[in-house]
Computed example of a mutant assay.
Amino acid sequence: MRVAVVYDCLFPWTIGGAERWYRNLAERLAAAGHEVTYLTLRQWDASNPPNLPGVRVVAVGPRMGLYAGGKRRIWPPLRFGIGLFWHLLRHGRRYDRLHLASFPFFSLLAAALLRPFSGYRIAVDWHEVWTDDYWRAYLGWLGWLGIAVQRLCARVPQKAYAFSRLHAARAEAIGCPTPVTILPGEYAGSAYSAHPAAVPPTLVYAGRLIPEKRVSLLVDAFALLAAQRPEVRLTIFGRGPEQAAIETQIARRGLGEAIRRPGFVAEAEIEAAMAEAAAIVQPSEREGYGMVVVEAAARGVPVIVVPAPDNAATELVDPGENGFVAADATPAALAEAMAAAIDGGDALRARTRAWFAANAARLSIAGSTAQILADMDAP
């Protein structure tokens, strides 16, 4: 089958869960014998073009900055949608199936407009479905537009997928064809070698410094924990629009010696820190899946997440087995969960490894790919 995987970013030029998923999916579909094209925005230099095994990469738009102030800019996804429209207008009949993310929506709308003329089928991953309240909080008075466009995209004839019960139910509620298929996982790796926790105990956060990741909550919680356990350390990897504010917060609380801020570093350094962490802390208020939980468990490292209406990562945490879900989104509750992870010690790390071993097949990208391949073979 001739398949186009459509996403405006490409790993490793842009790093994120969706970027990893679409690259892995494209390569696995190609390995299964399908003719695969990856349609994206250009992110690479001419001297360093992408080289994906068995996959043809086509840029349908120029290189563009995707974020401003921690939020997705409107113009890049709109430009991507326009570029995709013109590509499909000329070459749409080359494809039997398009596999897209629901967001950014403009590419899905472009594909839907040309589907009657090109004849391809459409598959859509609903990584997240935003509530009406979240759209209004995110876009202000323009929130109604996001709500309307999301609902319009749900009504496009499609094979709909999600990676969590939360977002599968939301996708069905806004009009996606039912049932929405829940894919079992996105993890493409295997278990790592066991590694002892560092001394003194160190907590690790790795991700963008943007408001919805709630890193400021982590700093406040760590201040409470450090007041009782001055030996504990915290490492925060990543950059973003909240970087200056976070560094000011750390200084104001007098935590400069206890919190390390390496910024953007080589992946090997992050890997070493994660392997030795007493726990990996992800206080995000919005996660469509929760890859951090699986990646931590593969290392035998417990993870701590924080409940929120839009946080599907909590579905992957079995408290006391592979980490903890804080009681609520307060510094005191998060500090208590971090203390529990530290106190769990080697026994908790062993249970976390056992949890991963028991769930590895369920959480593997292989299971998701097998489901997609089966759907492709269906009439």
Score class of each variant (00 low, 15 high):
327 A>L: 09
41 L>I: 15
288 G>T: 01
29 L>E: 11
176 C>M: 13
156 V>L: 09
242 E>R: 01
184 P>H: 08
108 L>A: 06
255 L>D: 08
108 L>H: 02
68 A>H: 15
130 W>I: 09
141 W>G: 09
109 L>N: 09
155 R>M: 08
202 T>E: 12
53 P>L: 12
40 T>F: 04
166 L>K: 01
338 M>N: 05
196 P>M: 06
257 E>A: 15
209 L>I: 12
244 A>M: 09
374 A>R: 15
217 L>G: 01
34 H>W: 03
60 V>L: 01
150 Q>N: 10
109 L>I: 04
300 G>S: 06
228 Q>E: 15
122 I>S: 07
252 R>K: 03
84 L>Q: 13
207 G>H: 06
298 A>F: 06
92 G>H: 08
138 Y>V: 10
128 E>W: 03
230 P>N: 05
28 R>I: 09
155 R>L: 07
268 A>C: 04
38 Y>A: 01
64 M>Q: 15
140 G>S: 06
102 S>F: 11
332 A>I: 15
147 I>W: 14
238 G>S: 04
64 M>Y: 05
199 V>C: 14
153 C>P: 04
163 F>L: 11
60 V>P: 00
155 R>E: 08
232 V>S: 13
219 V>D: 11
156 V>G: 00
281 V>S: 06
149 V>H: 12
276 E>H: 13
228 Q>Y: 09
355 W>C: 11
18 A>V: 06
312 A>L: 03
243 Q>E: 15
149 V>A: 11
373 L>W: 04
47 S>P: 03
218 L>P: 06
49 P>A: 09
124 V>M: 12
72 R>A: 15
259 I>L: 10
62 P>I: 03
268 A>H: 05
186 E>T: 13
74 I>G: 01
42 R>P: 09
140 G>P: 02
